[in-house]
Design a protein around this nucleic acid. Sequence first.
DNA 1: CGTACCCTTCGACACAGGACGAAATGTGCG
DNA 2: CGCACATTTCGTCCTGTGTCGAAGGGTACG
Lengths: 235, 235
Amino acid sequence: MEHIARDADIAPVAALIADPTRAAILTALLDGRALAAGELARVAGVSAATASAHLARLLDGRLVDVVRQGRHRYYRLSGHEVAEVLEVLARISARPPVRSLRQSRQARLLEEARTCYDHLAGRAGVGLLDGLRAGGFYAGADLTGEGERLLTGLGVDVAGARGSRRRFAPECLDWTERRAHLGGALGAAVTYALFERGWYRRGTVPRAVILTDEGREGLSALFPSKELTSHTPVT
Amino acid sequence: MEHIARDADIAPVAALIADPTRAAILTALLDGRALAAGELARVAGVSAATASAHLARLLDGRLVDVVRQGRHRYYRLSGHEVAEVLEVLARISARPPVRSLRQSRQARLLEEARTCYDHLAGRAGVGLLDGLRAGGFYAGADLTGEGERLLTGLGVDVAGARGSRRRFAPECLDWTERRAHLGGALGAAVTYALFERGWYRRGTVPRAVILTDEGREGLSALFPSKELTSHTPVT
DNA sequence: CGTACCCTTCGACACAGGACGAAATGTGCG
DNA sequence: CGCACATTTCGTCCTGTGTCGAAGGGTACG
């Protein structure tokens, strides 16, 4: 009368994430960019041979894709579902103690504004969603008509996001802020547009993004509330 | 110049899920009930000693809670966040091939209607959300005023769900249907009310739930669309 | 109390798999 | 063609951990 597993077996996938080196690799890829095998070895702090073995296993388990370019091989997460797993896991995982000053500065940068795979997170992401809500541009898990006009005017490909097979505009729980930010296809499209406009740019710390002067102006014009724009720059 | 992990380290938590025996135990607990250590050993197909060791590790990692009752120790998931991790992992995990007739019947039961930790999932869960939407009771990620009246009238503790620190009424992606069902605090409250009314009851297969005759009548009165009520009983 | 039962701890074993250096493969460039 | 570089494959070592039987606490019940 025993019940054999008829659910999806999650153990093999979890095992792929369970190794510290592979977890470091996956986390490094969490910003959606593709990194070369050598870079990943360096980030994870292991030899090239070791990283290669791990990447082969991740590839086999379909957690990452590879694109060959010359003598480099660039690896990236195979999709946003993988990023979601990592984020959800982070939500119930302990945050390691901060050791150095530099680390605490990096931590503050990430709490301020970062990308969560392909959309904006951290205080900036939460503030953006708050601003959209306060202005009547977003309600429930959808844009209002007014919101659709606003974002389209800013160069966001709203129609394309709607056509995507991905969920359109779900709220995504932020694991530093413990509040929601904008995720899904629309979250990605908005973030893409913000980069295109130069309102945000990538920082030197992986996943960290930085509000530019133009961005501060543009956003404060759109959202009169202070939340989004008053945050002090981290230097 | 290497980047040490300043993110939450997810590897230890993933390692807890990565062992097949522990994954079986966690999956068995996914319906939110508390099971005794012996039962868990049996469902996982290991000796009591082995199960005990695994449960100790899960306890240490805060994935499960234990409640001692006489000479039994009942284990349960420590919270819905843990259940969410398991569900998200299942979404990117391979479904094992069906081996026996009994397994395929069980699989059909679960696809039809099951609980996802504490709310309704499967075709029944997806149909319920569809019905709420079609009737104008739910839009975006919130109840409409009409929906609030309807559910309150059915005995759902809507106010309590709103007061919860959990998200109120998020859409939860169903990994068998690949469509959304109702999750969060409201999903749990609705499911609780459906059980209280006797419209659904627990099946013999873990996590499976069964639509009762009263439930069929009640739901078809509320939601004229056929989706929710026409499904053929699995025998 | 003594017995039956549930569960955990202990001791011992076996095995998976992660680590590296060295060598092999493959690509680009002069 | 030959050298430089990125990456993988191979061989080997070694730690970590999952497994069980047997023994050791607790708890209930007659």
